[in-house]
Amino acid sequence: MKALAARRHHPMALLVILLLALVATGGLYAALQPQTAQAEAYTQEDIDAGEALFLANCATCHGRNAEGLVDSEGDTLGPSLIGVGAAAVDFQVGTGRMPMQQSGAQASRKPPQMNEEQTSQLAAYVASLGPGPAIPADEWLDTSKGDATKGGEIFRINCAMCHNAAGAGGALTRGKYAPAVIGLEPKHVYEAMETGPQNMPVFNDNNLSSSDKRDVITYLEKLEENGSPGGISLGSLGPVTEGLYAWTIILSLLLGCAVWLGAKAK
């Protein structure tokens, strides 16, 4: 320590301290920053294979370099994919939304067109274009660590206004809609919150931390597990389907009885 103390007036001391401080800050940041780091490392072969798939399936709308395309009237054909990250690709391609079946208000879910390997290769290619949210680590998808009650509160405040309190989905403007969110893969729910696909707002880690997202996933899983304790759920759409049920099924049963009782005496 004495040697260190003796050299504290050395001209290089300031530089050394500055360097140490920088390393410490950077190192701490790297260690403590929210975990969005790549869950799996992509190889160059993945990226190349992904690019080939991209050119064959996606470039028509998104452009040859994923820079996005605009048609002659100035409407977006496909947005730029630079910086959307692997999570966005995994969600859109993994749920079959992309490649899009037809243009319209919104890409709807369909059986995936790419298998898991191809999806991963596409994700690798898009991730290589610029930094963006990565596919979530398994830790954040483990619902045994989640808090359903807190997730429920977050869901009611942030999600239910579009997706319905029971997760049954709902309408948005101009033919767009919020899909039902029950029975989905936790990974896709997480990625949707992280990347905000289509008309959905982005809930990044500053809005909802990774553990908050895990709580939401846990709540949705609990909703699915609990099912409908009262019997047939009628789509969990609330009073409208209940009223329709009363005017159709129940009224016909009553009508049947009335006709029967009215006819007997003849």
Partner: peptide, 12 residues
């Protein structure tokens, strides 16, 4: 604060 999608009263 929250209002869920599909918020309707009973049919009548």
């Amino acid at each position: 604060s929250p209002v869920s999608a599909g918020s309707q009263p009973d049919w009548y």
